[in-house]
Amino acid sequence: MSVDDDESGGGPLIQFVTFILMDEVYGINVMQVQEVLRVTEIAPVPGAPSYVLGIVNLRGNVVTVIDTRKRFGLPSVEVSDNSRIVVIESEKQVVGILVDAVAEVVELREDEIDAAPNVGTDESSRYIQGVATQEGRLLILVDLNKLLTDEEWQEISMY
């Protein structure tokens, strides 16, 4: 795939940071990624919703970490050496998402992004922005702003 071809056709190039969750590859817009952290201490927060793993101290700022596997309806696993917290900035606020591993940055043209197959429920697929094929693998693009509902964004803003 000629991702290095500039805007020669098919729309502008968009960069995505890809990460792994249960052997599937997901992508989020690189513009929304602030940084990637190794997993250190995640302090649990009493009373927090189930999809909140806890909070981390990022240079004096409290960042809420979302259990991405739980959010995506995937089984939980122990944190490994490859696990990372991707600190993202959505329209709503800055949060961290725990992922199994961070892979790479890929570039896609707009016309390479397809709509997600309509197989899941609206609830579970609302944060799927689209899909793309990369070297024979499906890349699932995530709309971070829809990772949580408005009520949920409001709820985690409390922490």
């Binding site: 201490e41 700022n61 409390m158």
Partner: peptide
């Protein structure tokens, strides 16, 4: 302390002591 905001629905939650990451 990162203090609670005004919309918090947990009256017992004052905020988070950032250094300790404790409620």
């Amino acid at each position: 302390v990162r203090w609670r905001n005004g919309i918090h629905n947990k009256p017992w939650y004052a905020g988070i002591i950032v250094e300790e990451l404790s409620v």
